[in-house]
Design a protein around this nucleic acid. Structure first.
Lengths: 204, 204
DNA sequence: TAGATTGTTAATCGATTAACAATC
DNA sequence: TAGATTGTTAATCGATTAACAATC
């Protein structure tokens, strides 16, 4: 099992969701997956080879085995806890979203500066309790859903609390120590691609 | 102005947000931007060259001019209307999110099958009204925030309503005609990258 | 003039795709 | 055996980075 490229890593969850959703035969081949997802078949085969060696010539992959291998590799079976900073619209949506559990992510608490939002029954705490809770529960993932102005400050708090992976929904760059990974959820980039497509359509 | 690569396109909003937020001198160079955002300076220079020719040797770019050029290129000044299908947690958050206006995106209506969610004052309509509204207002962008099971069905409705660009938040692949572009907001992929980072940290 | 910067051309790197041998 | 499939090696493509000439 060699080291995985970022682009491969991003496609693995797509294969997994396809296998779970649209595919009910016992065996499945890279060709079938590639056609269903409009991808190149060699690409799919290489991606799968990186995380599995259960593929058999002429037969393909056992669907159930492949699902397990993907889930294990992606860590969907070992739970990671996460905290969220900023319990506004988006933060609340993510805090209430049950779908992350499926990916092995438990968002166990939300934090905010705004006293009026705090509601310990619903697991929303004042930000002053962040560090203690993260250290105590050994939490590594922090989700930032505050506005641009507060993002760097919250980021610093997370780093100070021992977080090493940050999922940043604020549209801004964050400065972090080199051992911390920031994953920017760049909605503006998605929009840029979408609106470019519309413009291209108009010009043709 | 040559054709823009997808990776360049995705970085442009990042430059723009930096220029607006963290930078208050009259002129700014690609080197300064690259350092602030931890990118390669030639990459920034090439990206900017693709959308602007206002850079001057020894001087750099006039910050205001560059901001305008980026905004124009990204279409932040010409508004696009969009509709949302699925007014659950995430759909509501996006419907209420004021931040998209900054990107020239107006989410003007939400649609749902669930009669109890419909509230025309808050611009939430029954899905049966989708096609008429999209045609009448000449809408090109649809946002899908329903669950996996309903996603393809909603997608078909959008295509039928004349939508050519779909922003898909449901974790599933959508089949569309070739002239329709689907931008998948792949949260599972972001999570995969984050949790890989944590695993790598543990193993070192 | 010297130094900082742009922007282009060439080199490198990595990811995708093509060709093909191995296998059931 | 023939055909479908895996998985590997080689070729291609595109994006990033390096080198450098042009410019204010």
């Amino acid at each position: 099992m060699r080291s995985i490229s970022k682009s491969t890593l991003q496609r693995l969850p797509i294969y997994l969701s396809f296998l779970k959703q649209h595919c009910d035969s016992e065996f499945v081949s890279a060709t079938v997956i590639s056609k269903a997802l409009s991808l190149n078949d060699v690409q799919v085969r290489k991606d799968l080879a990186a995380i599995s060696s259960s593929g058999r010539p002429k037969v393909g992959y056992c669907r159930c085995t492949l699902i397990l291998e993907l889930e294990n590799f992606l860590g969907y079976n070992d739970n990671e806890n996460a905290v969220i900073i900023g319990v506004g619209n988006l933060g609340t949506a993510l805090l209430n979203y049950e779908g992350f559990e499926q990916y092995g992510l438990q968002v166990i608490a939300g934090f905010d500066i705004d006293e009026s939002k705090i509601d310990e029954k619903r697991k929303i705490f004042h930000i002053s309790k962040l560090k203690d809770l993260c250290k105590r529960l050994n939490i590594h993932i922090g989700i930032i859903t505050v506005n641009v102005e507060q993002a760097q400050l919250c980021c610093d708090e997370l780093v100070d609390a021992g977080i090493t992976a940050i999922w940043n929904f604020a549209p801004t760059h964050l400065n972090v120590p080199s051992y911390v990974h920031v994953q920017r959820e760049n909605m503006a980039a998605s929009l840029a691609i979408l609106s470019r497509h519309i413009k291209d359509n108009k010009n043709n």
